[in-house]
Design a protein around this nucleic acid. Sequence first.
RNA 1: GGCCCCAUCAUCUAAUUGGUUAGGAUACCGCCCUCUCAAGGCGGGUGCACGGGUUCGAAUCCCGUUGGGGCUACCA
Length: 443
Amino acid sequence: MSEVRVRFAPSPTGLLHIGGARTALFNWLYARHTGGKFVLRIEDTDAARNTPEAVAIIFEGLKWLGLDWDEGPQTDGTTVGDHGPYFQSQRGAIYKQYVDKLLAEGKAYEHEGAVKFRIPKTPITVPDLICGDVTFDRTMDPDLVIQRKDGTPVFHLVNVVDDLEMKITHVIRGEDHLSNTPKHLALFEAFGATPPRYGHIPLILNTNGSKMSKRDEGASIGDYIANGYLPEAVRNFLCLLGWSPKENKEVVPLEEVIEKFDLPQINRSNARFDLNKLYWINGEYMRAATLDRLEPFAAAILRREGILGESYDAAYFRAALAIVQEKVKLGKELGDWLAYFFKDDYAFDPAAVAKVFTPEGLANLKTLRAALAEASDFSSAALEDRFKTLAAAQGKKVGVYIHPVRLAVSGRSVGPSLYHLLEVLGKDRTLARTDRALAQFPG
RNA sequence: GGCCCCAUCAUCUAAUUGGUUAGGAUACCGCCCUCUCAAGGCGGGUGCACGGGUUCGAAUCCCGUUGGGGCUACCA
């Protein structure tokens, strides 16, 4: 009946952790599934590692993944939402009120300058939407420091106060917080407030089963951006970690995930991070991407690598992209496949030269060069026809022509469909490159 | 150590919630296709951690063991 309000409350640590990204994703999915609100709150109470750059990295990561938030600080410095401020560092006065209230009611007390909250020494059950009922004994639990000697509030306090003030209805967070939940529940009770529903999602582990920490390979979303993963692929992969669309599907459109996603179906066991599968999914998305999607993505990468200038021949670039698209699985590989399209003095792969530019291979190349020079139609279909006709006339297989030209016009033995490659390069370039190869390797 | 969570192929997971030859995907290995590389097609091996129960019947429920993870801060 009341609107669902979930939140992602990262701490600016200098990176967006893959686990945090998935937590954000699950929260976002739940908000979108229920038509609720997704709130972004920055838990920057630890001033030491709180920098504008670190906050910007969180923004960047979320936006890259397509996780837009309905409330919270915006990239341009403005704020959206009526429950702010959304930076904990700006909420000191609010926390103070709550601490004073507990103090006044005798639910907290001062101890060596700090303030401690009296944890009820009775068993408590956390009704978790994912884990089920989890009961904690608490009879031996020590009281909880909620305000340090220096007057600053502690995580557990601010977390609860903010969730309460921001009217969060569902707390979806990592399972590492399950054991902390009794403390949070006690705080809500002390404030006379109804606690949110909780859903603790399993953690993401390294391939070897150890806990994935900041330093580990692939732990940062920034790594995926840098390596040219497609955000939609990373998002799809993350969805599959702890959740399944059933029906033996792996590649799942976002709309379908939003429609099917729900808390009770989330797995309860930790998942290991399988980079192989992410790589495969990325390839799936690469091949399925439209040219309009791929062009800006690829152009940004190739510019960064100095392969493409600020301005470029869009039609030529798109044509090249179209024929290598099905070969490439990762943005990072794009440069390797496309560099020679934009560079005429490419080097020749020595191993390929040794194998293909044999006296016979070079002779075939010369024969072919003559045939291509006469071609008026340089379309792939016409080229294929011409190659086959030539081969038949000479009593040879087309391969004996194909391999030398490929090496001649690209410097390598691996590439897209040769006829298509020549079509994209065009007659002039093809002949010029062939001549260059012939000049360099006279036989 | 104490408390909590978890346990299906190497990995991510499915199993109409006790009745299946335990399914799919990635990875790996063959074969096919083929101008290279991919993609695609076909095929293959690998799994219910272990031990007890309950039941006509257990991957599924219960207990224990083992293993993994988390929490146990005046970090978040």
